[in-house]
């Protein structure tokens, strides 16, 4: 138990430290790399909780796909860091005000927080241990059996977002020559070649 407790505090501290570095690193590429470190440490926390499926999905989806695209975009941006710093003091009052308002709102919400007695009772119970089912099967049952329609709706929303992005960026430009592989494959020598007998001194 001692080892897992030490591991928990190690990973939790690393998560917070790297999350802090995400917003304080000067170089945006470093920010993204710290973000990846934060993802890794939260995946490790999931593993400690016994939720290995979520941990792996977190790495596959966020680190393997989302953060790669982040990094891709951030690397291509041509940012002048000195210029970025210049407006810092100018925007500090407005930014600070917004932060303060959000903080006050959060405090108001949390202080007025009341849980129904039933919820407290449910929350204090230990999660049912279904040792005969693996993690993956349990999540599969919840998503595809109990909440199948909600899951489908979530998928639809993502699909709509994707189609929207494609529609916004896709425009047909005239005069672009594209390779049509099927046409190339179906080309026959008879259609595209002609053998001519050329007399000397006359040309074609």
């Amino acid at each position: 138990m001692i080892i897992s407790t030490i591991a928990f505090y190690l990973f939790a501290a690393m998560t917070i430290a790297s999350a802090f570095m995400v917003i304080s690193a000067k170089n945006p590429v470093h920010s993204v790399l710290y973000l990846i470190l934060a993802f890794f440490n939260s995946a490790a926390l999931f593993v400690l909780l016994g939720a290995e499926f979520i941990a792996m999905i977190l790495i596959v989806v966020y680190v393997g796909a989302v953060a790669v695209l982040f990094l891709f975009v951030v690397m291509m941006l041509d940012i002048n860091f000195a210029e970025l710093r210049q407006g810092f003091l100018q925007y500090l009052p407005i930014g600070g005000l917004i932060g303060l308002i959000l903080l006050i709102e959060l405090i108001l919400v949390v202080s007025g927080w009341a849980l129904s007695p039933e919820a407290i009772q449910v929350g204090s119970q230990a999660a049912p241990l279904m040792t005969d089912l693996t993690n993956t099967e349990q999540i599969g049952q919840v998503i595809y059996t109990d909440y199948a329609y909600l899951f489908q709706i979530a998928g639809m929303i993502l699909l709509v977002a994707m189609i929207g992005a494609i529609v916004l960026t896709n425009r047909s430009r005239p005069g672009v020559r594209k390779q049509n592989i099927a046409r190339q494959v179906y080309r026959r020598p008879e259609e595209s070649m002609a053998v001519r007998k050329v007399e000397p001194g006359q040309g074609v």
Binding site: F53, G64, V68
Partner: peptide
């Protein structure tokens, strides 16, 4: 012998890109 072995492999292989992209940058 973990229960999510395939996912682990998929996760690790999807990280392989970082070595290359960080090297290039």
């Amino acid at each position: 012998d973990i229960n999510v072995g395939v996912l682990y492999l998929f996760a690790i292989s999807s990280l392989g890109v970082y070595g290359i992209i960080v090297a290039g940058w």
